[in-house]
Design a protein around this nucleic acid. Structure first.
Lengths: 342, 342
DNA sequence: ATGAAAGCGCTAACAA
DNA sequence: TTGTTAGCGCTTTCAT
């Protein structure tokens, strides 16, 4: 069995409270401090956080429920989160619910039993039922990437609409008027937002949106490759492509390569996420970059604030993080070409 | 405050032990069972695993320490692991130590304080010092992906040497004699193993290994692209390329595309990991696939066995999982060509 | 089958 | 500053 505070007390001849005080930053006589530290060393004592948790009703553990872990987007968010939390003495229990609302519900119940101090969730069940259950505990919830109506809590979003707006505006500024849109599933929030941005950019530039240029894929590499080919087949005049997530960006590059279409000479491309991939491409891809680690860090910080209770504003915060445009060389300026052929 | 068993006891008029018995599969009179369940419903009772953990000295929590979470390899392992563990009522606390032995040590200490029931580790500190610390708790350790000498515990490895052997043999069988090797860092275990497999395949086929065909990269996309170009420049007669991890495979595809080199007409390519990427490529890539989720699942299962104590063999198991060759169309058979030009 | 009571390792209130 | 003590919510003998 592991050593307990009692053992330290016995070893040093001191009382329990003194030992506890030592660990909780209380004042302990220098002489005793040395004794205690010697005993800790000798007995390999490590505080039992379970006992502490029972007593204080604080487990210093945050539950995290996400749809899927096997994509860099989720993984990097988790990294940023876990990093901040552990630095503050908090553990994170991560539950990958495989995009299944039922598993998500189980995961949340599980976390309630584990008495986590708070929940960070990238929600699958948009109805909010799962979250309502957790909210009964009175413990803080921070939502990531998606809103859930009916749930009042802090939320970290990415301004997807703006990301798409800027990406497409960049293409428009460079003279492109037939811009293909490789979108995600119709019913996914981020996908809808990005399509809105695509449309708004067109409106702002006074360029009409053409249905034939919009392709709803599935956010996968393969879907991106196929979508690219479909768009090429349907639109002879297409001069540019906007891929609205990472996997579809990879797919677009593959699809264009396969057809032997030069970027940006024949088709200009703006992608999404993953700067590493963008840099590896030739020419380097222009992409919209989501601040993945920052999303995680922010979520963690807000959670920490709620837990410390030192929060002034009592109403939920809704933070919208901006994406960055990382410019490469995959967009060709065709304004000159346009004026030549009016 | 959340409801406790005491509340249930009060509500039902039963004793504490009866309630506890109900939750632990003991026999409870039908009449009382109904009463208890009604009370649970009414009070929204959820077992407090913290209290239970203190009493039973079992937290039903497994600590997981890995170097990095932001690559599909790690992420999928974690998915497989977490899946199995949670299905058995175990939580996983994941610590990403950013490939830093010092952070790894902190993480392990942290997990000791959290009183996790076991540790699953993809080790960074190969010296074993970090693990020795944890091992003092007497709790089980399962190692993943790498051995650590001096630590006696269960280990799940992938037969990397065999994976490379088979990949390179495939190329040799197809008549290739100048096969470039895009390797990882010299000091990484998996990288060394894969190089061994490359060499053994050559020996088995009676083809000499040429130093100029071996490139030590850094397991990144960019490294793969650069390595590919280096190898092309150094070796005019190179007809094939073996990329020894996923990122370098992406890099190789990009590098070859950039030079406008056709796969497999000009260069045959065998890659590593990520079937999704392989399928998205044209032509579909032939790759060695590591059973990532299975690694995680196996690790979890072995851990579960150790914890249940029903393990017959008391000595550590060392399981070596085989990779799969997923054949695409990226390898050209040039045996005929060779006989034409002897 | 059920109840009473002790105690897991810690914190915190109170006393000294 | 330090010691004593009660009790967090549960499991687990031991009676009944």
């Amino acid at each position: 069995m592991a050593a307990t505070m009692k053992d330290i007390a016995k070893e040093t001849g001191l009382g329990l409270a003194t030992i506890s005080s030592y660990f909780n930053g209380g004042n302990v006589r220098e002489k005793n401090r040395v004794k205690i530290e010697a005993a800790i060393e000798k007995l390999h004592y490590e505080v039992n956080e379970v006992a502490r948790g029972l007593k204080t009703n604080e487990t210093h553990t945050i539950g995290v429920v996400i749809p899927e872990l096997n994509n860099i987007f989720s993984a990097e968010i988790i990294m940023g989160m876990e990093d901040v939390l552990r630095q503050h003495g908090y553990a994170t229990i991560i539950c990958d619910c495989r995009t299944d609302p039922a598993i998500e519900r189980d995961a949340m119940e599980f976390l309630v039993r584990k008495r986590v101090d708070g929940l960070i969730n990238m929600p699958v069940d948009i109805s909010g039922r799962n979250l309502q259950r957790f909210q009964k505990t009175g413990k803080p919830i921070v939502l990531i990437d998606r809103k859930v109506r009916g749930i009042k809590c802090d939320t970290i979003l990415v301004d997807n609409e703006d990301a798409a707006f800027r990406a497409v505006s960049l293409l428009l500024r460079n003279g492109h008027k037939n811009i293909g849109f490789l979108g995600g599933p119709r019913d996914v929030y981020t996908s809808q937002e990005r399509l809105k941005g695509y449309a708004r950019a067109h409106k702002a530039a006074g360029v009409p949106v053409q249905e034939a240029l919009i392709c709803h894929g599935d956010y996968t590499i393969r879907g991106g490759a196929r979508g690219t080919e479909e768009l090429l087949d349907r639109n002879v005049h297409m001069t540019a492509l906007f891929a609205s997530n990472y996997d579809m960006t990879v797919g677009a590059v593959i699809g264009l390569n396969e057809r032997n279409i030069k970027i940006p000479e024949e088709i200009s491309l703006v992608g999404f996420d993953n700067p590493t991939f963008a840099k590896a491409c030739h020419p380097r891809l222009t992409i919209a970059v989501q601040p993945t680690e920052e999303i995680g860090q922010q979520a963690a910080r807000i959670m920490l604030q709620r837990l410390s209770g030192s929060e002034k504003t009592d109403f939920p915060a809704c933070i919208s993080l901006k994406t960055e445009m990382a410019e490469g060389r995959s967009v060709r300026d065709i304004t000159a070409v346009n004026t030549e052929n009016p």
